[in-house]
Amino acid sequence: MQQEIRYTVPGVSKLDMLKLKDARGVEFAEVPVPAGTYGEPVLFTMTVTLAALQVLGAYLLKKRTQARTEIEIEEIHPDGSSMRKRIVLDNSSQEPTEALASVMKQIHGR
């Protein structure tokens, strides 16, 4: 059993996976499509530990667009229970550091 809280985010592109794969506390697993179907090119689910929370925050921040975006992540607790969180990526006039702080607060509550 994992001893610490982890976070997962699905739908990570291969490009992002290759950029982030060497970061500490980050793991990737290929997202499958049902057998026999025509899926889109490969995507990954990223799992990060608390130590790599900044990586997750920076990744989510990069996903901001001109419109308000929401991305769902899952918080997995050491006892196996989990909780979904919708992270709101708001395109306000926030500076990158403020925006990162806002995302981190939504992920981890501080």
């Binding site: 699905p10 739908g11 899926g39 490969v42």
Partner: peptide, 15 residues
């Protein structure tokens, strides 16, 4: 995540 939810788009040739 929910086993029924899909995180990669797809089309099924038979269905």
């Amino acid at each position: 995540m929910d086993g029924r939810q899909h995180y990669r788009s797809f089309a099924d040739p038979l269905a």
